[in-house]
Design a protein around this nucleic acid. Structure first.
Lengths: 213, 213
DNA sequence: AGTGACGGCGAACATGCGTTCGGAGGGGCC
DNA sequence: GGCCCCTCCGAACGCATGTTCGCCGTCACT
């Protein structure tokens, strides 16, 4: 079978992409017919079957507009909207992310492709203020994605709540005997030493993103 | 008018999101009816009109499944597929991105939200090999997005083709009198000095992305 | 009680839309 | 020519689906 689509089939495929991009729902067979100047719906059907055979689209039979583009150029990467809960590393407390997501609609969110938060489900985002993690390549203004966590292993980058100071900060976490060392990734800054009871881990670092201004 | 949807309308909206997320095309009114355990199609229609009045969805009348979710939670951020043309900073030449995009379908691409390449149209991506730009927060393994360019102003981060070496590298560009200085952002590395005729600018840095492994 | 807005019901209607079918050119092959 | 395979036509068929319409119960207000 001719694997590389050509002519009419390529045209239909292209039309599919444009239509979906524009309208957010797939075209009907007759939409395709008009859009590609094809004389009969059966020709469209015929070529759609071909495309389906070649694995380029998937059709839900008996369902209006039940066409879905497959393959690298059709499969839309999943987008996740991550709630942006505030700013970190400069004093302000952040609210603990509630598992109750309902009613959050008015909150600011960042939309990212799902590979930024791979696998995780309750991810939240914080905007970084300051350069204390610069050597971990996290700059002022970057966005970090965290997953809720209550504990960490040494070396993890975590958002911690310092009870005595009433602030939240992003640091590397080291439990050293009877104390906890919160290590900035910035050689001009000193680590924070404190008692384990004074720290409350809020989230674990997943990934960071530098918004292109 | 009651702006905050509740009960049945919220349920329908939620069903819409889930259905589209799963199937990639909108549900029919009867799909909604079943999915939300509603007794009549007219009730669905009634509530859809309400939702439309409130500006939460858009309907294409007389069109099957012509429902589109609006608002922050419905509008999918645009995704752009950027061609990944190769690796940069360790010797291998990269092909010049051709303006002829046709037939590129088999090439590897990265899908990112459009804000990573804001405004630009012919962006391409390269995977960074090495740490020569580490102080610009570009690490080994990062992906950089570049726009085609033939010239640059001092301080720009550019991908340049070094004719005598036959390689491409990512550096900061400084034109200094009769020579060009290509400055790594890594204090352990020395700049490259060369003649202007020897360098050919291939692209200008737009943004970088650290894939979460 | 009367009234009117609101949300819901169920049936019928009119179209949208996928599918099917007989048929017709146009190669490639014997 | 005769025979297959691919592609395309046009029309008809029939289920899918959006829409309309009359009617009902509830609630607030008068």
């Amino acid at each position: 079978m001719n694997k590389d689509v050509s002519g009419k089939q390529a045209q239909i495929l292209e039309f599919l992409r444009e239509f979906i991009e524009e309208k957010d729902y797939p075209p009907s067979i007759r939409d395709i017919q008009e859009g590609c100047a094809i004389s009969s719906t059966s020709v469209v059907d015929y070529n759609l079957r071909k495309l389906e055979d070649k694995g380029l689209i998937r059709r839900d039979r008996e369902v209006s507009r039940g066409i879905e583009i497959l393959g690298a150029h059709g499969r839309r990467p999943r987008i996740v909207e991550v709630p942006m809960l505030g700013t970190i590393a400069a004093g302000q407390p952040i609210p603990v992310p509630t598992s109750d997501r309902f009613g959050n609609d008015s909150d600011e969110t960042v939309a990212v492709t799902e590979d930024m938060v791979r696998g995780k489900s309750n991810v939240f985002a914080l905007r970084v203020k300051g350069t204390s993690m610069i050597e971990d390549l996290i700059d002022d203004g970057d966005i970090v994605f965290l997953e809720p966590a209550a504990s960490a292993t040494n070396g993890d980058r975590v958002a911690v709540w310092l009870k005595d100071r009433g602030e939240v900060t992003l640091k590397r976490y080291y439990h050293e005997g009877t104390r906890v060392r919160l290590q900035p990734a910035n050689s001009t800054m000193e680590p924070i030493y404190t008692a384990p009871e004074n720290v409350e881990i809020q989230g674990k670092f997943i990934s960071s993103l530098r918004p292109s201004e």
